[in-house]
């Protein structure tokens, strides 16, 4: 299993930076380009790169499919839950200003943070789930992969 030595070393160096870049895109989204969707896709791409180089089983033990299944639902729940929370606090659906009535803009910041976190979770999990679903299928053709 020592094939693709260069690929293994380079990807081992790169994957942590790709994952950190995803979180940069996520949390810097208020100031620069980016946001939950882009961050989620980049995060999923880092795991997919890991799976391509080190095998699907290694990726599945790093990010178990049960987490992925949980994350998919949790992302949508977080987004919708933020909306319901603003309802319960007396505002409209997804009107974040009601979180901090004294400083409406602060509430907007918290709301955007929560909602983008939901998008990140949902997008990254769905991408991984689809990849796991396709990648785990038994292969018909014997040969290279």
């Amino acid at each position: 299993m020592n094939e693709h030595g260069i690929l293994r070393v380079v990807s081992k160096l790169l994957i942590p930076f790709i994952a950190i870049f995803a979180f940069y895109v996520q949390f810097h989204g208020d100031y620069g380009p980016g946001g939950g969707f882009q961050a989620g896709v980049i995060l999923a791409a880092s795991v997919i790169l890991y799976a391509l180089i080190f095998g699907l089983e290694a990726a599945k033990s790093a990010v178990p499919p049960s987490w992925v299944r949980f994350g998919m639902a949790m992302g949508v729940f977080l987004y919708g839950g933020t909306g319901v929370a603003t309802w319960l606090l007396g505002g409209e659906f997804l009107n974040y200003s009601v979180f901090t009535p004294d400083h409406p803009s602060h509430g907007q910041h918290y709301g955007i943070l929560l909602v983008e976190l939901g998008v990140l979770l949902a997008v990254a999990s769905v991408m991984l789930a689809i990849f796991y679903a396709f990648g785990s299928r038994p292969v018909n053709h014997p040969g290279e992969d």
Partner: peptide
């Protein structure tokens, strides 16, 4: 909203329902 990135503001706040 007091954030510089208008795209994020439109996506997550003004048009939050669409993004949901």
């Amino acid at each position: 909203i007091h954030i510089p990135n208008v795209v994020t503001a439109v996506l997550a706040s003004y048009r939050g329902f669409d993004t949901f």
